[in-house]
Design a protein around this nucleic acid. Sequence first.
DNA 1: ATATATTTGCCAATATATGACAAGTCATCA
DNA 2: TGATGACTTGTCATATATTGGCAAATATAT
Lengths: 98, 98
Amino acid sequence: MKSKFGHKIRILRGKQKLLLRELAPLLEMDTAQLSKIERGERQAKKETVLKIAKILNVNSDELVTLWLADQICEVVKDEKNALLAMMVAEESVKYLKK
Amino acid sequence: MKSKFGHKIRILRGKQKLLLRELAPLLEMDTAQLSKIERGERQAKKETVLKIAKILNVNSDELVTLWLADQICEVVKDEKNALLAMMVAEESVKYLKK
DNA sequence: ATATATTTGCCAATATATGACAAGTCATCA
DNA sequence: TGATGACTTGTCATATATTGGCAAATATAT
């Protein structure tokens, strides 16, 4: 799967029986773009993520999390030390939270 | 600390008693840029990371890891679900490795 | 075949990142 | 105190990447 976020919203859109051409205008974009986002060919903006959550009536935290995870994967893809780097980054984040 | 990678190379440079104006030309950049990279004000390119490892004679994996961690931190900074997103991303990476 | 839904390819517009340079600060010391 | 050396800061033009939008192509279903 190319994009967790895209996959998720495609499923949600399907469940609610919405078409690309119906959802896209609500997000002020054209169907082609939304199609690309769903297939992970293009990244959504955070603003778009939040809008989608509202429209599809789902918890925005969940969508934002998937969307962030996609971006992290993009950063570390093909990197031998991907997992290690993520652990190092986690430590920083935990430290900053304190 | 704004950048793990930058911090690390500044330490290494210090230990080897190299000046910005000495190291920078070896990396084909000017001192201002290197200074910004060391302070995390600007991101190094991967190519630069590898070059620095060679010149400072350190293991490139370690530097690449720090550099990746910086980028991950950049992606998730200010995000409430940063840690969760990282865990989700980790799962994907682990899965892809199989 | 026709109609509808989605995908693809392309390009112009926009945004972001980069490199280069000049001027700035700061500490040291003659 | 003022000259020097190391580093930092600000700016700007340009390179690079991302985006939006459209038209055409490809499914998919009737």
